[in-house]
Simulated assay, not measured.
Amino acid sequence: MDRFYEARQAFLAIALRDEGGYGEASRTALLALIPTLDGDKRSLRAYAPELPDTVRNL
């Protein structure tokens, strides 16, 4: 991975969200964030694919 990977993924997530790809945007952002975190990353890697594709009104 190159040193700009996380930054490019963050901008991709913004673009995906702007186009209505909420689930894909969330997954992209979360997966880009994981390498920068300390501690157990396995649970986040497992959770990311489970994020829904639509936004739920709370």
Results as ranks from 00 to 15, higher is better:
D53C: 03
A29K: 03
L12D: 14
L51H: 02
Q9H: 07
A13G: 08
F11D: 14
K41L: 07
L31R: 14
A7T: 13
R3F: 10
G23K: 01
L44Q: 00
E6Y: 05
R17I: 06
R3G: 12
E6C: 08
S26C: 06
G23S: 02
R27W: 07
L16D: 10
R45E: 12
L51N: 04
S26F: 03
Y22L: 12
T54S: 10
L33P: 08
T36L: 15
Y5G: 15
P52F: 01
A7N: 12
R8L: 12
P49T: 02
D18N: 15
D18G: 10
A48W: 01
A25C: 02
L51M: 09
I14Q: 10
A25K: 03
Q9T: 04
L16P: 04
L33F: 12
V55C: 09
K41W: 04
A46C: 05
R42P: 04
R45I: 09
A46H: 11
D38S: 08
T28Q: 06
E50C: 09
R17C: 10
E19G: 15
M1H: 14
A48Q: 00
I14T: 07
A7K: 15
P35C: 04
D40E: 10
E6K: 05
R17S: 09
L44M: 05
E6R: 05
L16Q: 12
P35Y: 01
A29F: 06
T54Q: 12
P49Q: 01
E19P: 02
E50M: 13
A32H: 02
L44D: 01
P35F: 02
R56K: 13
A7I: 09
D38K: 14
